[in-house]
């Protein structure tokens, strides 16, 4: 099966489970499903957002794509190559094209190495350029993330930089090889809002000016709306809704996405704000792996269908796919007006 050319990433029914260590004597470790038969396409040149709460499996998905972990089942294609079977030289070539930016900039830079050493390391590993060319490439990468003049940073060490600067160094390291595809795993969750905006704008620059495709992993719908062309909402390892970012956030179809939007504080919003009220007041027992993942908290779910049959993704509008049996039913909730605090 050959993926079409304008797709850069394709996940097909990818499953990943973790085995937890047995808690007490004689108790076998239980299995935690991090990803449950996920299928996704990311097009070349877009920013694709993977949105979910902690424990939803969004980070696992990113780690599988860059081959930091191996999937249990399913296929992963990046730019036409099957990722799980890469080895040796071909894996190293793959590493040149696919990079990652990690969540915590305080942990993702080696404290013992200077900024120049850190950013030039990928060049050294892939034996690219001579000394002068490497200096030039590192300077270019640092400049592209707004660290200028770059020479001032060459000899500094991570502990001398602020969190935002460190994250930008980490982004420069990812950019120095000129990758086609970058996974950004919650790059701003450890940073303040004003610094996050900086990082977001660099990501936009990467897409617009450098033609990089991005998989942006986040817990924030607002950030996803600002950055992403398309988003996928993921809950406990299951894809809930995939579509254009604006479409999903303004006209969410899945009860879980609706519940997420309900839960976000009404800030920067004026006038009528729709409330969906799809979250169940009291949780009911979960469907034991056979039904919908959101069944236990869903206010729309019907016991007969939702607890016994897992919904698959269905296309309800062009490009907008939802995994819910009742997604096209009458939309729940009523419009209510909230106080208006601040308008942009």
């Amino acid at each position: 099966m050959k993926p079409t050319t304008d797709l850069i990433l394709r996940l097909e029914k990818v499953t990943k489970t973790y085995r937890t260590k047995g808690g007490r004597f004689g108790q076998a470790g239980s299995r935690v499903v991090a990803l449950n038969r996920i299928s996704l396409d990311v097009r070349r040149g877009e920013i694709f957002g993977l949105v979910g709460e902690s424990g939803s499996g969004k980070t696992t998905a990113g780690r599988l794509v860059v081959r930091l972990e191996e999937a249990d089942a399913g296929e992963i294609f990046v730019a036409g190559t099957r990722v799980p079977e890469l080895k040796g030289r071909r894996l190293k070539q793959f590493r040149r094209k696919v990079q990652m930016v990690f969540q915590d900039p305080y942990q993702s830079l080696n404290p013992q190495r200077s900024i120049f050493d850190t950013v030039s390391e990928p060049l050294v590993i892939h034996r690219m350029g001579n000394g002068a060319q490497r200096r030039e490439a590192v300077a270019q990468a640092l400049k592209s993330v707004g660290l200028s003049p770059p020479e001032d940073f060459f000899l500094r060490y991570p502990h001398q930089l602020s969190g935002g600067q460190r994250q930008r160094v980490a982004m420069a390291r990812a950019m120095v090889l000129g990758p086609e595809f970058v996974v950004a795993d919650e790059p701003t969750s450890m940073l303040d809002a004003s610094i996050s905006a900086q990082i977001f704008n660099i990501l936009l620059h990467m897409r617009d000016k450098l033609g990089v495709t991005l998989l942006f992993i986040t817990h924030s719908l607002a950030a996803a709306r600002y950055l992403c062309d398309r988003i996928a909402v993921i809950y406990r390892g299951n894809l809930m809704e995939v579509g254009e970012a604006g479409e999903v956030i303004e006209r969410p179809r899945h009860p879980y996405t609706q519940a997420l939007l309900d839960a976000l504080p009404r800030f920067g919003q004026c006038g009528a704000v729709r409330r969906y009220n799809t979250l169940l007041g009291a949780e009911r027992p979960a469907s034991q792996g056979v039904g919908c993942a959101f069944y236990s908290r869903c206010g729309v779910a019907q016991r007969l269908l939702c607890s016994t049959q897992a919904p698959s993704l269905r296309e309800l509008a062009p490009g907008h796919r939802v995994a819910c049996h009742y997604a096209e039913g009458p939309e729940a909730g009523t419009a209510t007006t909230e106080a208006c605090f601040y308008a942009t």
């Binding site: 809002a193 004003s194 610094i195 905006a197 900086q198 977001f200 704008n201 924030s220 719908l221 607002a222 950030a223 709306r225 600002y226 956030i249 303004e250 939007l261 976000l264 800030f267 920067g268 919003q269 308008a343 942009t344």
Partner: peptide, 13 residues
């Protein structure tokens, strides 16, 4: 600060 509605204007760090 990114928001959830209104037009998306470029954030100013």
């Amino acid at each position: 600060y990114p928001t959830l509605n209104g037009t998306i204007s470029r954030l100013k760090p």
